[in-house]
Amino acid sequence: MAKKILIVDDEKDYVRVIEQTLTDEGYKVITAFSGKEALEKVRDEAPDLMVLDINMPGMDGYEVCKEIRKDPLYKHLPIVMLTIRRERNDKIKGMNLGSDEYITKPFRPKELLLRIKKIFQVISRE
C-alpha cells in the first residue's frame, strides 16, 4: 500500500514542488499550511511520514515536532525538517527535538526523495 506523507509548509510554492516530487514516486500526499493544521492532519489522517517546515506564523515547526514527540500514538512518526534555517544551532535544535532528517532550503527535490526512501528502508528492515 502506498505510504502517506504529510507536507507542512506555509509557502504554497514549496508545498507544490514537494507534492509533485512525492506524487510522481507514487506516494500519497496530504498537505497542511500551518502548525495547527499539521497537528490536526496527523491525528485525523495518521500519515507515515511528515515533511515539516520550521518558519511558520503561529505555531512553528519546532513546536509541532515537540507536540508530536509527546503524543504516545505518534511519537515514532518520522519527521523530515525542511527549512530555510541553515545555521548549525537551528539544525542541532531540530535534531534534538527528534527530527529524523534536517534538509535546508533551497534543496534538490531528488535528494529529499532519496532521504525519505532511506527512512522507509530503515523502518522496514527493523
Binding site: 509557502e11 510554492d13 514542488v17 530555510i84 532550503k105 533551497p106 534543496f107 527535490p109 531528488k110
Partner: peptide
C-alpha cells in the same frame, strides 16, 4: 529574501 530565492533555486534544481 531567502524564501523566494530558495523557491527559485529549488524549482531550478527540480
Amino acid at each position: 529574501l531567502r524564501s523566494p530565492l530558495g523557491a527559485i533555486e529549488t524549482y531550478i534544481n527540480k
